[in-house]
Computed example of a mutant assay.
Amino acid sequence: MAMAGGSDDGAPMMEMNMTPLIDVLLVLLIMFIITIPVATHAVNIDLPAPSNTPDNPPVDPIKNKIVLTPQGDILWNAQPISQGQLVGNLQQSLSFAVEPELQFEPEAQASYDLAAQVLNIIKASGVTKFGFVGNEQYRSFGCGDCAPLQS
Results as ranks from 00 to 15, higher is better:
N44G: 09
F104W: 00
I62N: 11
D46V: 12
Q92Y: 01
V98R: 15
I33A: 07
A39V: 13
L94E: 01
L94I: 07
P12D: 10
I33W: 04
T53K: 15
V98N: 14
N89Y: 07
G144W: 13
S93L: 07
E101I: 15
E105R: 11
F96G: 06
G5M: 03
M13R: 12
K123G: 04
Q103N: 10
V59W: 12
V127D: 03
N89M: 08
Q103F: 09
N17M: 07
A49E: 15
L28K: 06
D9R: 15
Q92M: 09
V59M: 12
I122M: 04
V98M: 13
M3D: 10
M31A: 00
M13Q: 12
A124C: 05
V133F: 05
K129S: 07
A115N: 09
Q91H: 08
D8N: 13
I22M: 08
P48Q: 10
S95A: 15
E101A: 11
D8E: 15
G134N: 02
M16H: 00
I33V: 06
S151Q: 08
N77I: 04
A2Q: 12
G88T: 04
H41E: 09
F32D: 03
G5T: 06
V24D: 04
M1R: 14
Q83V: 03
M3K: 15
P37Q: 08
D55C: 03
I121S: 01
S125W: 05
L47M: 10
Q71K: 14
E15S: 07
G144S: 13
E99M: 07
A49R: 14
M1H: 13
Q71N: 12
C146H: 10
S95T: 15
C143I: 06
A39Y: 11
Q85E: 12
D46W: 04
I122E: 02
I34N: 00
S125N: 02
I30F: 06
E107Q: 15
L90H: 01
P54K: 06
I22H: 01
N135Y: 13
